[in-house]
Structures are given as C-alpha cells and as structure tokens.
C-alpha cells in the first residue's frame, strides 16, 4: 500500500516537472496582452510614458502616469528581456543598447528601431543620457566633458547610441593631470567606460574611476562632492538642479519589444499608447 502511494506521488511529480518545462507555443491572437513595464521612477519608464503620451497632463500642472495597473513591473533590463522572451503574449520596452535576439523590436510608425533612425529623427522614441556636475569641478573633469562633447567623443557615443551633436568641434584639450571619479546610472555606465578608454589614449596622465550604481545615487554623490561627474538616465529633479548642471551626452532609443513568435512587426504610436494604458487588452483588439 505504502509503495503504491509513493509510486503514484513520484509519477505525479515527474508529470508536473515535465509540464513545467514545456514552454508555451506560438502567440495566440485571442489571448490577453501581457503588458510589462519598468518601475515607477525609472528613467526608461519616465521617457517611455512621456514620449508615447501614456502620461496625462492636467492644465494645473498635474501629471498622471496612466500605465495600466495590470502591467507587470520589473526593475531590471535583463528581467524585462527574460519576461518578454518567455511569454508569447507579452509586450515591453528596453533601451536600444540592450536589445538582443531573444526578443523582437517593433517598428514604430514604420520606422525600425535602429540607432540610424534615432539619429535622423524618423524613430522618435529616444531620451538623453545626462551627466551632471557642480559648478566647482576640477580642470580635468572639465576637460573630460569637453572631450565627450567633441567630435571624437561623439564618435565613440555613435558606436552604440546616438550622438547629441553630429557637427561637434574637434577636441582641443589641455590634457591636465589628475584623477576624477564618475558615478551613477547603470544605463550610462557602458558608454562612459568607452569614453574613458578613448580619452585616456589621448591623455595618459589622467586617471578616471567609474562607479556603477543608479541615477539617484550618482546625483547624490555629485552633490555631496564624493564624485566629480554624476551620470543619470533620467531628467534631473528640481532639488538636484539647484546644485548641479546637467549636460546631455547621448541619445538612447527605447525599443518596444515582443516575443519573437509574435506576428506583429509594426505598430503606430497610438496603438502602443492604447496597449500601455489598458484600452486595448487583446492582440485581436489591436487596430
């Protein structure tokens, strides 16, 4: 008797394990759309809701984030990608620099999500990467910022993101000695690492230390003077602007992504808005 029960239980567990491993198949048009969004306060989310009009603005200056309350919330780019890649009915958004082939990026109003299209303005969904400094920054920090905004610096940016100024003047730095530290947003860090490398080949006497955390920590560090340059992937808050000056160094496109099995390849901005506000809830209902 005991053995029979044990065997039955074992068989049941095996069955559960097998069903657990088989992933869902192709996307089903009648199924509900799984909306995946970033957390409140995230730079990517802030830019996304503003650019797609998911944010309702009142005449009295009030703002309301209209993202549907049913949206799954994730706080990391990689979790966003795993969620979308694992759910045939999901839709979400990531920074264009983080796209990979486990998901499919949609064209918006006919323009494909590429850095070139962000550059020429046909793909309108982009946000600036910002560096912030206090007024009394060191000579080296000033020179490094001049480099970032120069032709050479913007060429580095153009590799994976979009330059803010195509016709920037060439770098004519004074190449001072010293050491500076840069801290802040993990979205900006990869491009900052490349800029640092390029700058150090021009000015080997300098030393630059980059600390990756998040936008708020970077701004706090810059205000307190524990770092020379702060990095942010969101607009600066008023309390931060009181002490810091922000400069945009690159444009980062935001790609709307779906499961690779999803037949949809192109959407209008209006369709994206209606999905993220919860007006459209099924792939069938998409007009």
């Amino acid at each position: 008797m005991k053995q029979t029960i044990t065997l039955l239980l074992a068989a049941l567990m095996l069955l559960m394990a097998v069903t657990g491993c088989t992933q869902g198949g192709a996307q089903d048009a009648g199924k509900n759309i799984t909306v995946v969004s970033r957390e409140d306060g995230s730079g990517t989310r802030g830019a996304f809701i503003e650019l797609f009009g998911v944010e309702a603005k009142g005449e009295d200056g009030s703002k309301k984030d209209m993202t549907t309350k049913e949206a799954l919330i994730v706080n990391k780019t990689d979790v966003m990608l795993t969620n979308i890649a694992g759910d045939p009915n999901a839709i979400g958004y990531v920074s264009m620099g983080s796209l990979n082939n486990t998901v499919k990026a949609l064209s918006i109003d006919g323009a494909a999500a590429t850095a070139a299209n962000v550059q020429n303005g046909s793909y309108p969904i982009a946000r600036p990467f910002i560096i912030a400094t206090r007024d009394d920054v060191s000579e080296l920090a000033q020179d490094f910022i001049r480099f970032i905004l120069s032709k050479e610096g913007q060429a580095v940016v153009g590799g994976s993101y979009t330059a803010v100024d195509e016709n920037a003047p060439a770098y004519e730095g004074v190449k001072p000695e010293g050491k500076i530290s840069v801290a802040g947003s993990s979205s900006v860090t990869p491009i900052m690492e490349k800029l640092k490398e390029a700058y150090l080949t021009l000015n080997p006497k300098a030393a630059i230390e980059i600390q990756m955390s998040d936008s708020t920590a970077g701004m706090t560090a810059a205000m307190e003077g524990t770092c020379d340059i702060g990095m942010a992937s969101r607009a600066l808050k008023e309390s931060e602007l009181a002490q810091l000056t922000g400069t945009a160094i690159a444009l980062d496109g935001i790609a709307v992504i779906v499961h690779p099995g999803n037949p949809v390849v192109d959407m209008t901005g209006e369709q994206v808005r209606s999905i993220f506000t919860g007006e459209t809830t099924t792939w069938e209902g998409l007009q």
Partner: peptide, 12 residues
C-alpha cells in the same frame, strides 16, 4: 527594492 534606485525626495 524596485523603486529605491531612482527615487528622490518624498518618494525616497
């Protein structure tokens, strides 16, 4: 944990 990374002021 979700929101601490970007929160500032009263939100924080």
């Amino acid at each position: 944990v979700l929101e601490m990374g970007y929160a500032a002021e009263l939100h924080r």
